[in-house]
Amino acid sequence: MSWPEAVPLGGRHAALRLLSHADAPALAQAVQDGELWKLWFTRIPAPDEMDAEIARRLQLHAQGSMTPYAVLDTQGTPVGMTSYMNVDAVNRRVEIGSTWIARRVQRTLLNTECKFMLLQHAFDTLDCLAVELRTHRLNLNSRRAIEGLGAQLDGILRHHQRLPDGSIRDTAVYSITAPEWPTVRRHLQARLAS
């Protein structure tokens, strides 16, 4: 069995469940909201690449290195993807990443609640020591959102990855540790209650 197991997670503003090939049509439509695949600083599948991306993530899940989720809005419609990735079961660490959501739900409580549910599950159920979040050094919106969760910058991995256009990505690495989680939890609960 893969660790972490893909258990469904639900809240008032969003829900997460194991990604499925049946999600491809809705996700192909969601990614068109903002033409997200055209963003230069990240890798998001184009509409015609959605089936292949779902297959890739599910293969990584079968290998135990990723737990991919479909992000659902309050109507139960898939509006994006997220994952536990870079899974380290021995050291009880995961990264929350490979996340994208349709433009219409960006900067809403949906995204905050998804991160809250994944963090809560990681720390309270999976007993993780730390959870990482990573983004392109120049993706300032993503960096502000990660910092807004309460994550701390661990550092920049310089010349970390080659992007599809040939450019080199410097990766900003953030984390939340188990001792920090109670404070971060209270902070996120207050944001979700407002």
Rank of each mutant, 00 (worst) to 15 (best):
T74I: 10
G64I: 08
L129W: 08
V105E: 01
Q29N: 11
R185G: 00
L60S: 09
V105G: 04
I96P: 00
D165N: 15
D88I: 00
T125N: 12
E5L: 14
L118I: 08
G10R: 15
S65I: 14
R158D: 12
L129S: 09
A102W: 00
Y174M: 07
G80V: 03
W40N: 02
T135C: 15
S83K: 05
A22T: 14
N139R: 11
P4M: 05
S194H: 15
D127T: 07
K115W: 12
I54A: 04
D51S: 12
Y84M: 07
T42L: 04
A130M: 13
S65Q: 12
A122T: 06
N111L: 07
A24V: 15
A190M: 09
D88C: 11
L60I: 02
T67C: 08
R103P: 02
L58R: 01
E95I: 03
A122K: 01
P182I: 00
A151M: 02
L188P: 00
E132G: 09
L16S: 00
I146S: 03
H136T: 06
W100L: 03
A26Q: 13
W100I: 03
W40F: 06
C114Y: 05
V184R: 00
V79L: 03
T82L: 09
R104Q: 09
T108P: 11
V131H: 11
L36I: 08
H136P: 13
R93W: 04
A178K: 15
R103Q: 14
